[in-house]
Amino acid sequence: MTARHWLLSGLLFTVGTLFLLSLMSGRAELTWSVLFGNGQANAQLILWELRLPRSLLAVIVGAALGMSGAVLQGFMRNPLADAGLIGVSAGAALGAVLTLYSGLAALFALALPLGGLSGAALAVTLVYLLAGRDSSILTLILAGVAINSFAAALTSLALNMAPNPYAALEIVFWLLGSLAERSMEHVSLAAPLILAGMAMLMATGRGLDALSLGEDTARSLGISMPLLRLLVLGGTALSVGAAVAVTGSVGFIGLVVPHLLRPLIGYRPSQLLLPSALGGAALLLAADIAIRRMPTDVELKLGVLTALIGAPFFLYLLIRTRRQHP
């Protein structure tokens, strides 16, 4: 066993434990025996139709956010790149909102994740064009601020123009994200696209390793930049886009997780991908368990909690990296 094996097994074990804990967390008190088919019918219904999809979504969405963060950071060689911060999640939310409230999603269900995907693709391409290669941290953050607020404004506009009176109230979901009352339909809708996106992201390892020596050197090592770009931007759009379309945009996972794990794997970008996916899944599960176990009357939105942890962390990172590379 190498250190990496220990890390991966530890993360896997954490995800497994949290997954079980997540199945056991909620308003209703369930006993463990429900897992084995005991208990009344409604307890079974709660377990399989409410908590299982919720926990599954936490795992795959967390994994998508964690891995996309690791890939974006490696690709942009910028430790502050994250789907939420640079506006990809906001773009995905806009795309999803447009398909959902226009009624397109009612016509064919796949329109929702595809909408999220298109929005995410647009945003990630825009960020790349604005602040793609070797940009300063400041440029990246400013580009992210611009895209974020623009997408949020358009989302709010779309919601206010929607014919349905409930629509305008739902901006909170899209900005802060939630896993509450999701169903297996959401899982089956988003999971294939998220997994496809993650497969693309997994294929970027070599390219990201080479890129840590700069773009010219990476090309001299046989890396095709157009292919790598396609994998990174496409994979991010697919995984983050589909994730946000069913859970809203949950921030900071992709920022915090790769950063915490990087020293443990020796900083090689390719080695960070899988651990970041597992770490993201664990963090999102933990956050979702926490909001269900908090004694609040109305469940907090997931993004509230991740931002409470993530935003101070982001500031700390910003100050530290600015000191290192002014």
Partner: peptide
């Protein structure tokens, strides 16, 4: 490259191993 440098604080032998990337094994 002129002014070549490594963006991440990797270990020396890991950086040197990147030279083997064209042989795929270095992944």
């Amino acid at each position: 490259e002129q002014d070549a440098d490594c963006h991440w604080p990797m270990m020396v032998e890991d950086v040197v191993a990147l030279g083997r990337l064209p042989y795929r094994l270095a992944t």
